[in-house]
Write a protein that binds this DNA or RNA. Structure first.
Lengths: 216, 216
DNA sequence: CCGCGTACCGGACCGTCGATCCGGTACGCG
DNA sequence: CGCGTACCGGATCGACGGTCCGGTACGCGG
């Protein structure tokens, strides 16, 4: 059994060496395509054209992959550049928050991972930016963490709620709810058909208005 | 092999028959004690003194158990009774929202399940109550779903964020963050030590203020 | 009092998962 | 040229969610 033919053996250079970055990137595309439930170390390894055990050289557990994938989503959120003009704090915050929400909704699985510590470098730098912008806008003392907390809470919560509603079974349940509008009259009359983008912006408006009146 | 001794055989009456309610209740206490990761159909069955397969007669999948457990948490939220006095809308909303948050934090695992459709009867009746209270307070048109959405988003998001912070690994990561306060100056200076209850109430104040100025 | 249907239960089992053991292989550096 | 180290993977482990199929006891009609 003298070694196989060269033609069958992949050339060393052509085959990219496995990298943590490649693993995370492939995990994100797999999650985008099939969701969290179908992300398996075996399937992920197969897509990377390697054995499942090899992944464990680069990563300690599957949770590591998920943590890294989540932080990769945060990495897609661009930080508004340049100095904020006077009174431009609101625009900058809206921009950051909107991009943040868009990134989460681009990867609906990410909202299911938001219950784990968001301590990746990308998440932290976005949070730092939010704190800095709010501090510059005049928030101080206990109002600073409260304002930052409210905004990030609102973003993650609303993305979770909206991603949940896109689920197929959620649509079926909503139809069933429509039939029980006797039991839930107000909800059925006003809560079923609304535009998410408008609803989100409106709620963000409430929050920013309330914050502005506090700092003024 | 003529049947075992009567003394060893449990009397029929003494042994409670297995009920969906008993399953859900036991699942909640198991989740409270050990978290979602350690909730297993086998372990749950063992606690109920039955075989794991028996559970599947009462329940179709494990997800059913989780859905029911989550709705059981919502069931712990009392609905403020009686008619709301004039201008009492804010107090009622604060009461509901506060109790809602308390229930979620009493069962920290629940925040990890918030990405699934909240379509259980308990969740729906709380949402209906919220809609009705807000409608009575003067919200109409697109402002009604926006207000209800903002509030429930704020509650679920903030509970998720706080429950996440109680995690043991989160504390370790926070210590590490404290060491890197050069990279995240504003965050490290203001975001690490704050009282959750005060921060939550302050943020809720922003939101309610902004909502009030809208409906006025 | 009998017998039988139905509501309920569980041992054995299947395929798959996350993770580990341990033996390889090839590249770079001395 | 040889050897260490960085990287890879077949085989395997224990546990999981879920199903098959054969039970068991209780109530109800005869």
């Amino acid at each position: 059994m003298a070694g196989e033919s060269v033609w069958l053996r992949p050339r060393r250079q052509e085959r990219q060496t496995l990298t943590l970055d490649r693993i995370v990137a492939e995990a994100v595309t797999l999650l985008d395509a099939e969701g969290e439930a179908r992300l398996t170390m075996r399937r992920l390894a197969e897509r990377l054209d390697t054995g499942s055990t090899t992944l464990y050289w680069h990563v300690k557990t599957k949770d590591d992959v998920l943590d890294l994938a989540l932080d990769a989503v945060f990495g897609e959120v661009p930080l508004p550049g340049g100095p904020a003009g006077p009174g431009g704090g609101r625009a900058r915050v809206s921009e950051l928050v909107g991009a943040w929400r868009a990134a989460l909704l681009r990867h609906p699985w990410s909202t299911g991972l938001l219950d784990r510590p968001m301590m990746g470098p990308n998440a932290l730098s976005r949070t730092e930016f939010l704190y800095a912008t709010l501090a510059e806008a005049g928030f101080a003392g206990p109002d600073l963490p409260a304002a930052a907390f409210s905004l990030s809470t609102y973003v993650t919560g609303s993305a979770t709620m909206q991603a949940r509603e896109r689920d197929a079974t959620a649509a079926a349940l909503r139809d069933q709810l429509r039939a029980r509008l006797a039991t839930y009259p107000t909800l059925a009359a006003h809560g079923l058909d609304h535009h998410w983008d408008d609803t989100f912006a409106r709620g963000l408006g409430y929050l920013l208005d309330g914050m502005a009146s506090q700092v003024r």
